Simulated scan of single mutants.
Amino acid sequence: MASASPHTRPLSPHLTAWKWGANMLVSILHRVTGDGMALVGTVLIVWWLAALSGGSASYAAFMNVFTLHTGALNVIGYIVGIGLTLCFFQHLASGIRHFILDVGAGYELKANRRYSILTIVFSILATAAFWAYLIWGK
């Protein structure tokens, strides 16, 4: 029985062997945004419930971070809010893209790339429109 030399066996494909494309980025972003929303959302809901049960002072401190006014702590609220909104719209658009792929459409290389880029563009524009409405639309 002859043993194969380690130098003659085929190598497993590695990430450096693949050309990165928009579809790979969107696939990874779909997982990251889903996990991020679950993690951050869980932390925020627990914080909100703890603030509710802690009395009016702790609830006021929570609301001070997550309401639309100026202040040092409010910057954190904006970052978290905008980040969650961007994650939501990216995950939504990517989910719709996956639904289109599930029905059998969009597997052509150009269409797949176009849909992938559109999910990123949509998420950025929808986030900007949403926050523009929150800040200036009232």
Rank of each mutant, 00 (worst) to 15 (best):
L118Y: 11
W47K: 11
Y107M: 09
S5L: 12
M1W: 06
M37K: 14
I100A: 04
A2I: 03
L118T: 11
H91Y: 01
T16F: 12
G104Y: 04
V32T: 06
L52V: 13
N23G: 09
S12K: 11
G71V: 01
W131A: 02
W20R: 13
T85S: 09
C87D: 00
V75K: 10
I79G: 15
S5K: 12
F88Y: 08
L11Q: 15
H14M: 10
W136E: 02
D35Y: 10
W48A: 14
F130T: 04
T70H: 07
T70A: 08
S5H: 13
G34C: 00
V26E: 10
S3E: 11
V103C: 00
F62Q: 05
A2V: 07
L86C: 08
S5T: 09
W20I: 13
G36K: 03
G83W: 09
G71Q: 02
W136C: 00
P10D: 02
I28N: 05
G21Q: 12
I117S: 03
V46C: 15
G55S: 09
V32P: 01
A61E: 12
A2T: 05
H14T: 12
A129V: 04
A93D: 02
F99L: 14
A22S: 06
V40G: 00
V65E: 10
A22Y: 03
A61R: 12
T70W: 04
L118K: 09
I135V: 08
K138C: 01
F88H: 04
G71H: 04
R31S: 07
G104L: 05
W47F: 13
A128N: 02
M63A: 11
L29Q: 01
H7Y: 13
G81K: 05
C87A: 13
G95E: 01
V80I: 14
R31T: 09
Y115D: 13
A105V: 07
G41D: 04
D35I: 10
L11A: 14
Y115S: 13
R9M: 07
M1T: 04
L125T: 15
L15P: 15
L109Y: 10
M24W: 08
V121C: 09
L109Q: 10
S56Y: 07
S58Y: 07
V103G: 00
I124M: 08
I82Q: 04
L49W: 05
T127Y: 02
L29I: 04
S27W: 00
K138N: 05
L39Y: 15
D102F: 14
G71F: 01
Q90S: 15
G81N: 07
A51K: 06
F99R: 11
I96P: 02
G55E: 07
F122E: 02
S56H: 11
S116P: 05
V65T: 15
F122G: 01
G34W: 00
G77D: 06
I45G: 06
